[in-house]
């Protein structure tokens, strides 16, 4: 039994999974995750998830993009290849704004996406939850709560009984690692 990844309860209603998740956290479980076919804000609250770091990464990317874009223009137009074009100064900072603006957005957008993927550990081709046959419904119309075996309070019998006692639960399945 110790080889289990965790126990997974299936729900058919978004409200039920949120309530069960809240109850599990109240019962002291921490190492758990809920699964839903669409984002549910209340579920993040029920899991007491900390603020996402994506915004910070995105800000960092944006600043890097601004520095890189402006730096590239300054370096190539003033230092590396100074050219007198229509008598304009080498450092034509007004003209350098549009490309720097675009690189800021470019870097910010890519860091938001890559940051999100990195924080989520994606791409991840294999995950134990996919071993539960009913889990295919998680991308359609079913909701799941999985309490993982790594949680200090996890006990195959007691946790199963706890999940089975939740209102609205449809099934409790073992998740093979």
């Amino acid at each position: 039994m110790s080889a289990l990844y965790g126990l997974m309860a299936e729900f058919h209603d978004p409200k039920a999974v949120v309530e069960a998740t809240e109850a599990a956290r109240m019962a002291g479980y921490r190492q758990m995750d809920a699964y839903s076919p669409y984002p549910i804000e209340a579920l993040s609250e029920a899991l007491a998830l900390p603020k996402s770091h994506v915004a910070t990464i995105c800000l960092g990317g944006g600043i890097a993009g601004l520095v890189a874009g402006y730096g590239l223009q300054y370096w190539s137009s003033v230092i590396e290849y100074p050219m007198n074009i229509g008598g304009r100064p080498f450092h034509s900072w007004v003209a350098f704004i549009p490309p720097a603006y675009e690189t800021t957005i470019l870097f910010a957008a890519f860091s938001a996406v890559l940051g999100m993927l990195a924080l989520n550990g994606l791409p991840q081709p294999y995950h134990p939850v996919f071993n539960v046959p009913a889990f295919a419904g998680a991308s359609r119309d079913k909701f799941f709560l999985c309490i993982e075996a790594g949680d200090p309070l996890f006990d195959a019998e007691k946790t199963r009984a706890f999940l089975a006692s939740q209102p609205g639960v449809a099934d409790v399945a073992e998740v093979q690692p």
Partner: peptide, 16 residues
């Protein structure tokens, strides 16, 4: 990419 609809993932996803 192995998306599984985890609430932790949705949390970052929504932000991004």
């Amino acid at each position: 990419m192995g998306w599984r609809g985890s609430a932790r993932h949705w949390h970052n996803y929504e932000s991004a």
